[in-house]
Design a protein around this nucleic acid. Structure first.
Lengths: 314, 314
DNA sequence: AAAGTTTAATAGAGTAAATCAATAGTTACT
DNA sequence: AGTAACTATTGATTTACTCTATTAAACTTT
């Protein structure tokens, strides 16, 4: 058994197709066939059920693939250990970011980061929370930035910052006159929410639930961007909630419609998330440092008493 | 990087000598030298410091060895998965047992076990608790039987049975007349103890400590066998404590000196211990079944209220 | 149903690698 | 300086890996 053979098994398991898998691991299809046969011979067990189309894993095969993932990950980490020792910061790094964080956070740290660590080839992908969890688990992402906690046993979270929510309330709304809002004032039926891989939405829903027991409320609408929400809100369709960093982009004429909360200020916890196997830890560390550094200037609420709605699920 | 190379690294790290390591992995010394050089080239780092005699690991080398152990263990587990699937129970199995359990437990299950699982080549070694912990961690043992809990993060424990302690009190002792003893009656200064890799000793010490705060008592004596303890006890040097199974071997004329405890009966927890990596789990499972089966007949205290002294450390 | 398409297995050749026996270099110790 | 103990190097041999070309099987399309 070699690590190479395990790589081959993983490729075939993923693509369910020898030819495609062969391309991905940069060998010809016969090589793949033979090496997998050799491994199956050595273990004296069938890993793949070739009678099925597309090809399928046998029961043992599934377990072997799980274990092979472990081994491949662990073996990748050896180069990692060496890199860390040498202080080498480089290589490909795949980072996932949820849509509601991407546009505000990315411009803040990206150019700084690439200047500081030019050898790191950052590949950034906009993904919803579910996709992030999946891709972190199967190794398609090295790290991600999302609202936390995710309560995933297999993942580790490192909070980067707490982003307060700010209420956007159109002039004729019942709450338009209150200078400082209380969380208790919110009515879930009255808030326009964003569909955002559930994480942002859930955050606010939980926030409301903690004060009003709403079981199965129907939401008026779920939009894809805050821009839309603000416009709908202006059409008197209700108020909405914006993460603080998004309010900075708002046109001046709408800035007056923003109402901040009294303490404890509701906020979302934004974290750097990565696999428990801690691959490429040295890059994750410098990424965290980069982001924390830049965010300190932008979010000045670090010391105020905030509540993170998702935290209450723990 | 291949798994074979990692095996070689581990062998050299263990023996600190290429020649001896080569013998252990059944290749010639030049092969070992070359393969390790190749790996060092590939990683672009020195794993061994060859200027030292005997050869030493570099700082990175130590980390690499730790990781290599992981990988080798995890890769061994693949064959394990296959064996488990096939219901194959066999292969070499190295079991460590502490001295105070060995003579009583081993005869009870060994012949049964070897009959039931003839393909398992059991290699049993008598070891003290410290040696057991070390050898379980570095893979020189597959499992062990000792008094628990050990509170070792890296090891798993499965209690096999609770063996009550019985007091052996010579005729002229102050407690000789009491039919049923209470734990509170014990005086640590008055008990002859066995040096047994600390586990048995600690068990009793803790037991006493829970009732009398004794900080740094000097023990009169620490012997190597219960036989000696009983003889010393007969010489009026104090009472002693015996694990229940050992009292069965006592000569009839001494049986009268045995005093059992009132409930809760003090006892030692005897467990099957193995590495968290759960290698050879199928053998560990049948071993547990074998021992549990045979012990049910010997220890009939299963239902009485017992206290395990070591438990209190948790 | 026959021809075409897709995909995996097999065969044979060439290349790369791992291993060995023999030997040369090193270091430590007397 | 001489020796013992040990690792590195060399060159031959064997083994393993990968490739191209081809065959075989299964599934589609006509």
């Amino acid at each position: 058994m070699t690590i190479t053979q395990l790589h081959y098994v993983l490729a075939v398991a993923e693509y369910q197709n020898f030819t495609k898998a062969a391309q991905k691991v940069f060998v010809t299809q016969p090589t793949l066939s033979m090496q997998i046969q050799k491994l199956e011979e050595e273990l004296e067990v069938q890993i793949f059920d070739r009678s099925k189309k597309p090809i399928e894993l046998t029961e043992v095969g599934k377990k072997i693939v799980e274990q092979a993932k472990n081994i491949v990950n662990e073996s990748d980490r050896i180069q990692d250990i060496v890199d860390q020792q040498k202080g080498f910061i480089g290589g490909e790094f795949k980072l996932g970011i949820i849509p509601t964080i991407m546009p505000t956070l990315l411009p803040m740290f990206l150019s700084n980061f690439t200047k500081a660590y030019p050898k790191v080839k950052l590949k950034i992908e906009e993904l919803h929370t579910e996709a992030i969890i999946e891709k972190l688990n199967d190794g398609h992402l090295d790290a991600a930035i999302a609202a936390t906690p995710l309560q995933q046993e297999s993942l580790k979270e490192r909070p980067l910052y707490y982003e307060p929510f700010v209420a956007y309330i159109p002039p004729n709304h019942r709450l338009a006159q209150s200078k400082e809002l209380k969380v208790e004032d919110l009515d879930i039926d009255d808030i326009l929410l964003l569909e955002d891989g559930h994480c942002f939405k859930e955050g606010i829903i939980n926030l409301c639930k903690t004060h009003k027991k709403i079981e199965d409320t129907k939401f008026h609408l779920e939009s894809g961007s805050f821009e839309t929400l603000v416009k709908l809100s202006n059409e008197e369709l209700g108020m909405t909630l914006l993460p603080y960093l998004h309010t900075l982009d708002l046109q001046p004429k709408y800035q007056n419609n923003l109402h901040s909360f009294e303490e404890p200020v509701p906020a979302r916890e934004v974290s750097l998330i990565f696999n428990k196997s801690e691959l490429k830890m040295q890059i994750i560390n410098v990424l965290e440092k980069s982001i924390s550094g830049v965010i300190k200037g932008a979010i000045t609420f670090q010391n105020v008493n905030i509540i993170s709605p998702l935290k209450q699920k723990v």
